[in-house]
Amino acid sequence: MTASQKASDAVASDSSSYVTFSLAEETYAIDVLQVQEVLRVTEIAPVPGVPDYILGIINLRGDVVTVIDGRRRMGLPNHDTTDQSRIVIIDVENQNVGILVDSVAEVVQIASKDIDPTPAVGSDQSSRFILGVHSSANGLTILISLEKLLSDEEWELVRSM
């Protein structure tokens, strides 16, 4: 096996598809394998007594699915939903969770070698979810991990209540 073959193999196996979406002018990306579907914003029933980043629940074809406000979770300014707003349904621990985002753009391939570590920006709460950043001609994409989005202490607190 030649060196170039090895390199291309590595690239093939180390690159993944990501779904990009925007939140407050920034582009974020999550692993496409975690995304179940993308919905237009439907009626979200608020649930009393939960952290404010949980918007409520929706009826997804007979299943009750929690919806999280992407902006609030990432510590971004609040924003009303628009025509572009979408709920991205993702799979976490075999259960569905929805994230409300400003818009959903496309599916992109990003090689793991092109992912740079998170720039040190202090201990902002949103940095916990960030896997790294990827810069391309289109600008900067922030890769986020959903396990982290849903497994911090607050989340535990909600669960244990």
């Binding site: 649930v47 629940i57 699915v65 929690t66 919806v67 976490v92 621990e93 969770v97 669960r159 244990s160």
Partner: peptide, 12 residues
């Protein structure tokens, strides 16, 4: 139906 993920223990 159970409440969605993370909400199963909400009091009340």
């Amino acid at each position: 139906k159970p409440l969605g993920l993370g909400l199963s223990g909400v009091p009340g």
